[in-house]
Design a protein around this nucleic acid. Structure first.
Lengths: 331, 331
DNA sequence: TTGAAAGCGCTAACAT
DNA sequence: ATGTTAGCGCTTTCAA
């Protein structure tokens, strides 16, 4: 098939080691450099990363395992992470487990067999046993967006409690007291954390939160619409609501537009993520945004740090702040 | 590090070939099968796919190269393709070139060096020279959603002209004659094809299409809002509009809701993709949907066919039909 | 069915 | 700086 370094050696009359040195950026006599480059050009040589990987016991490949690619938050993180990784010479193997813990475990094994050098995972399951396999093999793992108990891995989170708190704060500053929350399934870390933050902030403000003021949807567009309908039915006196992920924000906005409720006159809204959607909304939607690119950057940074050999620095949990972006949907 | 087949051989007292046979599903004496399985269990053996790949000159890895992961259409296709591929034992290396032809070329080389067995690409660039490299190495390429001139590769498309035609047909059946189109940049294959289909259908129906009745946005949410604003300003007498991708549909809907225009009373709309969004919209949005899962299935099927050794069947272009899903946004 | 041995393309020690 | 050599973990003849 393709040419190998042997062919280059033969063509140039040099030894294998010289070619290898050249390929790995070590110093090579100018004259030989030219020779090698000519031969490479002529024979269309390209390094065989597989062979290299076998020898060095490194694949220069990272596994990214996520619950759902069809979720803009996931997609944004991946897109940024993949970009940085590729610049550093790492390939990204993507696995989408469709929010299914069985598939997630299978994917972990799959990536293990593939000998990926490291793993970035936004976990679906709550327990880290299958991840231990990675750690045991000294392969770094970075957990994204969610926390896993008793797992000694680096972790990049967002301050979800604070995010919800900020929203409550903003509503209060405009005088709202009857505030609703639409969050996600309580077995999802972020959904639970946002609820917790919401309740704490409300309690701090001395505001009541009845059960029906908090609706747990399913993090989808339709779920968001349904949740908003339910919230308004059961708690009609509510004047403000926080919707705690992007897809549900889209759904909630659709529902509100349909019911003829005017934002912010009849109801104030704070949504989540996707600045582009918020900007296009009318009136411009106030949102909590998560720093997806920075999450990716931190996670990749941590992974690269461990990959570069640093296994002794204790594992750390990076907690990134969210931003509140003022629109015109709160009054 | 991990155990190798040598360790298994030593542990069981068998030869390397026997272990290898077992691993590759060839028949092995029952007694030995048990021995081997016990040893594998005991030593936590796992095949090294890298070594296997070096020997067999196959990586069992497919490259997927796309213009933008933050685009639900792309994300849906990838998510389905990755699922099938993994079930077949193939890993998926994802490359997002951010709609940048330079990055796209780099990614092609990157994947080539990685010796992926095949490539699925939704091209950004219009010329296929860098893809020729793949073909020359006898690695199958499947082109998704867009066509590349003079490239002898399998291709999976959607009938974009017909999609636009269907929408025009639907509008006409309700008596509309002043129909607008919001499509994408004309250097994007699908955007141009949808425009072409729209114009042909209008011409067939004997309807006029002035320049300002067709607005080319940029396939983003904000672009969709802007395009709808422009369309209504320049052609206020329009009573119906087709929006030719999902992101722009979201934007257009936002703009319409804001301007107080009622759907479908004041304006009929047909959007594109994402049934979930359409269902949640109020009134339920009529849309053209593309069969993302089937696109993925066809593409993977073609790739697997070539990978299984069939290089002689002439390359084919599969054209999939779109669906029109009736909502309540046309009257 | 099984074992012995060669070799895939590369890197890395060692020698020069 | 360069050449020689061994070997990474596997598959695959070839013989038994």
């Amino acid at each position: 098939m393709g040419a190998t370094i042997k062919d280059i050696a033969r063509e140039t009359g040099l030894g294998l080691a010289t070619i290898s040195s050249y390929l790995n950026g070590k110093s090579v006599r100018e004259k030989n450099r030219v020779k090698i480059e000519t031969a490479i050009e002529k024979l269309h040589f390209e390094v065989n990363e597989t062979a290299r990987g076998l020898k060095t016991n490194q694949t220069r490949t990272i596994g990214i395992l996520i619950p759902e690619l069809n979720n803009v938050f996931c997609a944004e993180i991946i897109s940024e992470a993949e970009d940085i990784l590729r610049q550093k010479g790492y390939a990204t193997i993507l696995c989408d487990c469709r929010t299914d813990t069985r598939r997630e475990e299978e994917a972990i094994d799959f990536l293990l067999h593939r000998r990926v050098d490291g793993l970035m995972i936004m976990p679906t399951g709550e327990d880290g046993r299958s991840l231990e396999k990675f750690l045991r093999r000294k392969r770094p793992v970075v957990v994204l967006d969610r926390k896993i108990k008793d797992l000694d891995a680096d972790c990049v989170l967002v301050n979800n409690e604070d995010a919800a708190g900020k929203a409550v704060e903003r509503f209060r500053s405009s005088g709202h007291t009857k505030i609703g929350l639409i969050t996600g399934p309580q077995d999802i870390y972020t959904a639970a954390a946002r609820k917790r933050g919401f309740q704490m902030a409300m309690a701090d403000a001395g505001l009541e939160v009845s059960d029906s003021m908090v609706v747990c949807g399913d993090y989808t567009i339709q779920g968001g619409a349904k949740a908003m309908r339910k919230l308004r039915e059961e708690e009609p006196e509510i004047t403000a609501a926080l919707v705690a992920n992007y897809e549900m924000t889209v759904g909630a906005m659709i529902e509100i537009n349909e019911s003829g409720v005017r934002i912010p006159r009849d109801m104030s809204i704070i949504g989540f993520d996707n600045l582009e959607f918020a900007k296009a909304s009318a009136p411009r939607l106030s949102i909590i945004t998560q720093p997806t690119r920075q999450i990716a950057r931190e996670a990749v940074g941590l992974l690269l740090l461990r990959l570069s050999g640093d296994r002794q620095t204790p594992t750390q949990t990076v907690v990134l702040p969210t931003d509140y972006i003022e629109g015109k949907s709160v009054s």
